[in-house]
Structures are given as structure tokens and as C-alpha cells.
């Protein structure tokens, strides 16, 4: 009896071990598949042209930062840092605006009963039904008439309005999860609605704020279509600048990849920094 049980246990252990190994391998493959382009981009930005086009590929080499130097200081006209800065301004402003305005809208939709509450909520979501190309012409005209063509403000306004709908929807769900008694307690304790929103509701939906901030920022950072049409020149963002590379006849691969790497880094850092706020269950166990 006592000898059978451990045997059985080992057999089961081996089976789960093999299973785990398979899952682990599959995960590694998947991660490798996802990260390989990133790896290629970063290594290429650090290679010389010869190393880039060598066959068989060069796996080990001494990195050099000449491409970065060229992209930032040597190229004629505006250099990469100008467009990176544009992207940063547009992304941070539009995400902050979208999350803050969206949070207020979501709180209103979650907490106040008024006629057409559900209709308003649905309308807000429906603004994303049409593909963006569908309304690019009217938006272009509006921006042009208001004299905002090729300005950061144009992009900020457009991105904010595009992000607002999903920010509102996601945060509405988060607000609905806060037990109403917590806010009632604050009402009794002497707080106004606005202060309850700021000091009770917002801190309690922090994971939602982080999630929507990340999603809005990624969208604004990567958006190409509107950026290329509304701000093709001085106010261009980094995707538009990058596209300019592939349009030219012979591509400077090292510099291209250097700018690409610099374009990925900020949004990666932003996402990683906010990620730790994505913990769930802050309000769990708040009321009996």
C-alpha cells in the first residue's frame, strides 16, 4: 500500500511535468515569434551596413551607435528628436484628456439616473462603429477651417475624441463595481459629489485609469492615418516621420531602425510604468 501511493504520485508528477514543459516551450515559441522583429530592429540599428546585409547573418558583433548619432544630429532638416517630442506632447495630452474627461462621463453614466442614460452610453460607444477613413474628409475640413492644420492641437483634439468612447465604456464598468454605500458614507461624512469623485471614486478605479491610459497612449502614439493627413509637416508625429524613410529610394537601414527603436522605447516605458497599477480587486471586501 505504502509503496504504491508514492509510485502513483510520481507517475502523475511526471505527466504534469511533461505537460508543463510542452506549455513552456509553446509559450517560448510564441514570445520568440512576437519579439523577433523587435530584436531585428534593435540589432540592425546597432550594425554597420555591411553587417546588416552579410550572409550568413552576423549574430555577434560590436554594437555601434553611429546610426543614432546620424538620426539625431546629422540628417538634414528636422531630426528624429523633433518628431519624438511631437509624439510625446500629442500622446500625453490626448491620453490625459481622454482619461479625465472619460472618467467624468463614465461616473455620470454609472451613478446618476436620468432619462436616456442608456441611450447616451450606447451613443458614445457607437461613435467608434464607423471606420476612421469614413469621416476623415469632414474632420480634415473642420481642422482646415479652424486654421489648425499641421498643429499638435488638431491631433490632440482628434485623438481625445476617438479615445473618449472606449475610455468612458471601460471606466463606467469600473465605477459600477464600487459599492454605492462607500460613496454614501462620504456624502454623510460631509463631502460633495465632486470631491467624492476625486477623493473616493477615482482612487478606487485606479486599475481602470491605468488600463485606459495605456490603451489611449498606445493608440495615440501609433496612429498614422489622421496624423499623416492633418499634420504632415512641422507637427508630424513619429509614425509619419518613419513612413518618410521607406518612401525614399534607398533606405538607410541603420538610421531607419534607430529611429524605430527610439519610437518604441517611450511607449514601452510608459506601459511598464503603469502596469503595476493594473492590480484588480481594490474594492474587494469593502462592504460586508
Amino acid at each position: 500500500m505504502s509503496t504504491i501511493v508514492p509510485d502513483k504520485k510520481n507517475a502523475v508528477g511526471a505527466a504534469t511535468g511533461a505537460r508543463n514543459l510542452a506549455i513552456y516551450l509553446a509559450a517560448c515559441l510564441f514570445v520568440g515569434f512576437g519579439l523577433f522583429p523587435l530584436y531585428m530592429m534593435i540589432t540592425t540599428s546597432l550594425k554597420t551596413d555591411q553587417q546588416t546585409f552579410a550572409w550568413p547573418p552576423v549574430w555577434l558583433f560590436t554594437p555601434r551607435f553611429q546610426s543614432y548619432y546620424n538620426a539625431l544630429f546629422v540628417f538634414g532638416g528636422r531630426s528624429a528628436d523633433h518628431y519624438l517630442f511631437n509624439s510625446l506632447v500629442v500622446t500625453l495630452s490626448s491620453s490625459a484628456l481622454a482619461v479625465f474627461l472619460g472618467a467624468m462621463a463614465a461616473y455620470g453614466l454609472a451613478r446618476f439616473r436620468f432619462r436616456g442614460n442608456r441611450d447616451v452610453a450606447f451613443y458614445i460607444l457607437s461613435t467608434r462603429f464607423a471606420p476612421p477613413v469614413g469621416f476623415i474628409v469632414p474632420i480634415y475640413l473642420m481642422v482646415q477651417r479652424s486654421g489648425l492644420l499641421d498643429t499638435q492641437i488638431a491631433l490632440i483634439v482628434v485623438y481625445t475624441s476617438m479615445n473618449l468612447s472606449f475610455v468612458t465604456w471601460i471606466l463606467r464598468g469600473f465605477f459600477l463595481e464600487i459599492p454605492i454605500e462607500i460613496e454614501e458614507a462620504a456624502l454623510v461624512d460631509g463631502y460633495t459629489r465632486w470631491q467624492i469623485f476625486l477623493r473616493v471614486a477615482l482612487p478606487l478605479v485606479r486599475p481602470g485609469l491605468a488600463a485606459t491610459a495605456i490603451l489611449s497612449a498606445i493608440f495615440s502614439w501609433n496612429e498614422f492615418l489622421f496624423a499623416s493627413i492633418l499634420a504632415p509637416g512641422d507637427a508630424a508625429t513619429i509614425p509619419v516621420y518613419l513612413a518618410g524613410f521607406s518612401a525614399s529610394m534607398n533606405i538607410d537601414w541603420g538610421e531607419y531602425m534607430a529611429v524605430g527603436t527610439m519610437a518604441v522605447l517611450p511607449i514601452m516605458i510608459f506601459t511598464l510604468a503603469l502596469q503595476r497599477h493594473l492590480v484588480r480587486g481594490l474594492t474587494f471586501g469593502a462592504v460586508r
Partner: peptide
């Protein structure tokens, strides 16, 4: 509620979790 100057202990506590 704020201007009624009341202390209320809720049946289900309703504490501020943050």
C-alpha cells in the same frame, strides 16, 4: 446628507478601501 451633521455607522461598514 452633508449638512445634516450626522454620524452614521453603516450596517455593512462601507469603509474606504483605499
Amino acid at each position: 446628507p452633508a449638512s445634516r451633521n450626522i454620524g452614521l455607522a453603516f450596517q455593512n461598514y462601507a469603509l474606504y478601501p483605499h
